Amino acid sequence: MDSEQLKKLLEKYLSGKCSAEEKLFVDEWFSTSGEKAAHLDEADLKRIEKEMFTHIRGRTFGNNIPVITSVKRFRSWQSIAAAFLLLIGIGYIFFFRKETASVEQVDAIPQLSTFQTKAGQKAKLLLPDSSVIWLNGNSSIRYDQAFRGARREVLLDSGEAFFEIRTDPAKPFIVYADGLRTQVLGTSFNIQMRNHRNQYMLTVNTGKVNVRSKDGRVPLIPVDAGQQFTYNREGGNHSVKHARTTDFSAWKSNEFILKNASWKEIADKLWGWYGISCKLLLTTGDRETFTAKFDNPSLEEVLNALRKINHFNYKIIKKEVIITN
């Protein structure tokens, strides 16, 4: 939205001709700015246009400009942010196709923003406190852009994320995901919600976190660096064990790692990395496992290498790979 569009919006508002959504936006601005809508002269209109334009920039981007990446290459969008700013409309909804993610300002829940990635995408998000969140493909997170209140809280709604959290003893950082509450003061850790195993997995690289469930099935459990907490959503059972934690966050460096992975796990990983579904038509070998490591591989490179571990045939048809014996 440019200055001319803002001017027209204000004129429609003052004449009572704007839509309900437009009225809500302007009402909100007047409420937060302390301005009065009545008796505005031309100078007031110009000043308000400028202030509203600044307000839009701050509310949309704030100080945390995300860096969007694909599986194969990293792309900063600072260079295109100014161009896209002209496309901002009421509601602050952005859709970036192909190798970018979608960012949505959720007005229904005040002060919360949603950041989403599609299959085959990764994103690095800088938070208001300079903490960093990496999102893997097919992931969604919500957060307060200003971290108001006594706690820094985010909600991981789906997928996988790696957190690098700045220390602030006076303002703990809390992640809500899959019915679990993970609290940290300053640490780095990975959270993965693995649908193919109906499992939540928390791996701590540095520092220490405390995790517990809202329903009481998981009491307060400390998880230290080098440990991994797993929770089965179906049975409610959980465990803490030592793990090679870097393997579980290697995805943010475009390392594709499989460790005793089943076909279901491989199918889930292929969807997250390449946005391609996997149809398993195996008459034998459905219990085979695979261990392998790749550095930023193509889909064909992965499949051809896995064939050397356990033989199978595959065919790629558009957005689907069919696996047969």
Rank of each mutant, 00 (worst) to 15 (best):
N304A: 10
E35K: 15
V302T: 10
G137V: 08
M1Q: 13
G186P: 10
A267P: 05
I88S: 15
R181S: 01
L270Q: 10
I221V: 09
F94D: 15
T167R: 12
E301M: 11
P110L: 10
A305I: 05
V302I: 13
D129W: 02
K264F: 06
F229C: 06
L14W: 15
A83C: 05
K264Q: 04
I276A: 04
A305Q: 06
A83P: 05
L40F: 12
V204S: 02
A225S: 01
E49S: 13
F30Q: 05
A150Q: 03
S3P: 02
T117R: 04
S130T: 09
S239Q: 08
Q227N: 05
S3R: 06
K98L: 07
V184C: 12
W251C: 00
G34K: 00
Q192L: 10
L155N: 01
N304F: 09
K269T: 13
E288P: 02
E51Q: 08
T291E: 01
E104G: 02
N195L: 13
Q105V: 12
I88N: 15
F290Y: 02
M201L: 11
K50H: 14
K50D: 14
H196C: 11
S131C: 02
D168S: 08
E153S: 03
R152M: 00
S131F: 00
A82F: 10
D44F: 09
A20W: 08
A177Y: 01
Y13Q: 14
K269A: 11
L24Q: 09
G58L: 15
A20F: 06
K36E: 15
S131L: 00
F256I: 06
V67M: 09
F312H: 11
I133S: 02
F94A: 13
D144E: 01
I93C: 11
A305S: 08
E11L: 13
S298T: 13
C278H: 10
A108E: 13
L282C: 03
E265P: 07
F115P: 01
P222H: 00
G236W: 09
E51P: 03
E160D: 10
T230L: 10
A119K: 14
K214P: 06
L24H: 08
E301L: 08
T114K: 00
F163D: 06
Q105E: 12
P297D: 06
N210R: 10
D178I: 06
F229G: 07
F163P: 05
K315Q: 15
M201Q: 15
A267C: 05
M201G: 08
A250E: 06
N63A: 07
Q145H: 04
L85K: 12
D295Y: 08
E11S: 13
D178V: 12
E4W: 03
S130Y: 08
S249T: 06
Q111A: 04
Q228A: 07
E164P: 10
N260A: 01
T289C: 00
G186V: 10
E288R: 01
E164C: 11
W251N: 03
V321N: 11
G89V: 14
K241L: 14
T245I: 00
Y143Q: 00
A37D: 14
Q121K: 02
R75C: 09
F290S: 00
I316E: 00
R142Y: 01
I266A: 07
A170R: 12
K214M: 11
N254K: 09
D27V: 07
K12R: 15
E99T: 07
S277R: 13
A101K: 11
